[in-house]
């Protein structure tokens, strides 16, 4: 493997972006799509388009606050995105409650799947939506970062800027509250 194929870690990229701002664009290429999917699962693709753009703008402008000893900027970027998602909390809960009530997810689906999925939203999915809607915002954020993004407790703590103990207790509470739906899922 040649030297040019070795990936520079995120912390180093951010450090270099001090004098060479274009380096920061690599972070966008690494994380934009996954953050988009995460946000779109919560709020729909249209809101995700805006939130992803704003996330990277905000990250770039506050890159001086990043502790470059952390090699991975993923939790940091998800943290910024989560703050932006939080502004849409009511909308998110409305969408979840609608799915829970009607079995039809108001979020736009991939075209090929639309018809099938809209008529086959099972009781389980409706239950999940209801359970997610009933959680507090903080508990829901921890649960989704762990369940959807496979983040460790430490990464979630960094993303949400909360102590690791709080991550544990929020997850514990979310599981407890939604235990009828989450059952024995490994999280």
């Amino acid at each position: 493997m040649g030297a040019e194929t070795i990936e520079i870690d995120d912390g180093e990229l951010i450090r270099r972006s001090a004098h060479d701002p274009e380096q920061f664009a690599t972070l966008f290429d690494r994380y934009a799509k996954q953050i988009h999917l995460y946000v779109a699962r919560r709020l729909g693709t249209q809101a995700a388009d805006d939130i992803v753009a704003e996330t990277f703008l905000a990250a770039f402008r506050r890159r001086e606050t990043y502790d470059t000893s952390f090699a991975l900027a993923r939790p940091w970027l998800y943290g910024i995105a989560t703050t932006l998602v939080a502004r849409h909390r009511r909308q998110e809960e409305r969408l979840l409650r609608a799915l829970s009530r009607t079995g039809v997810d108001p979020l736009p689906e991939a075209l090929a799947d639309t018809v099938t999925r809209r008529v086959t939203a099972q009781g389980r999915e409706r239950e999940l939506a209801g359970a997610l809607a009933s959680l507090s915002r903080g508990d829901r954020e921890v649960l989704l970062l762990v369940a959807w993004e496979d983040m460790s407790y430490e990464e979630v703590a960094r993303a949400l800027d909360i102590p690791v103990g709080t991550v544990r207790s929020r997850l514990h509470r979310a599981r407890k509250k939604a235990r009828n739906v989450l059952r024995d899922e490994e999280l």
Binding site: L37, A40, R117, E125, A129, A147, W148
Partner: peptide, 10 residues
Amino acid sequence: GIKEFRRNTP
């Protein structure tokens, strides 16, 4: 399960 919830989001 929760991991699959809305996984087909475009």
